[in-house]
């Protein structure tokens, strides 16, 4: 894959357009489907950038996101959104955008921000060189996840467990009934 810039820009423009549609459309179901289209384009972009593991994970997660969001919206018969034009929010977003660009220029402008296509790879060079002899994993990404940075994965599992426990606690059928509700019934 010599030059991926045209494909990448096409996908990026598609993603920006899809997110504009997702943000501005009035129907919640079409917004959910548009954001899912953005996610699938993201998966293809990962595939172009030499990250097949991420592309597969993104694809699976995207299908799950679509199912979860549709469960959250379609069964609740309120698909129409009333839009409130809020100038303060637009101004706040633009200010944040300016701050982001300004701080980015301040931090990376003097030291030299790495150009697209030339990563720093100070730590990763060690991983690439010693990954196979040290961990016997042919896939360097897997060896980083499960061996070099296994504590990160432990933290991820903790966060995932916590969120699943929270969702289960919120969604369980028979919760405790509050005392005043019992009294009023």
């Amino acid at each position: 894959m010599e030059n991926i810039a045209p494909q990448l820009y096409t996908l990026l423009v598609f993603m920006v357009i899809g997110s504009v549609v997702a943000v501005e459309t009035k129907n919640l179901l079409s917004a959910v489907i548009s954001v899912s289209a953005v996610g699938f384009a993201l998966s293809v972009a990962f595939l172009f950038m030499g990250a097949p593991d991420i592309a597969i994970t993104q694809l699976v997660v995207e299908v799950l996101v679509l199912i979860i969001l549709i469960r959250g919206t379609i069964l609740l018969d309120n698909t129409a959104v009333e839009t409130h034009g809020d100038t303060l929010a637009v101004v706040a977003s633009l200010i944040f955008f300016g701050l982001l660009l300004g701080f980015g220029a301040m931090i990376f402008g003097s030291t030299g921000f790495p150009e697209f296509g030339e990563p720093v790879m100070r730590v990763s060079r060690v991983y690439v060189q010693t990954g196979l002899p040290a961990t016997h994993a042919a896939n360097i990404v897997t060896s980083v996840i499960l061996d070099f940075r296994a504590y990160d994965t432990l933290g991820e599992a903790t966060v995932l467990f916590t969120s699943v426990i929270g969702a289960l606690a919120l969604l369980r059928k028979d919760g405790k009934v509050r005392r005043e509700e019992v009294a009023s019934a």
Binding site: V61, G72, S163, L171
Partner: peptide, 28 residues
């Protein structure tokens, strides 16, 4: 290509799914 961001993004994607399910259950 750099394998380190890929490994961290793999973690981030899955965590995004977990937080999304928590948010949607709150919304329901």
């Amino acid at each position: 290509v750099d394998p380190l961001p890929q490994a961290l993004v793999l973690t981030s994607i899955v965590i995004g799914l977990g937080t999304l399910s928590l948010m949607v259950s709150m919304v329901i």
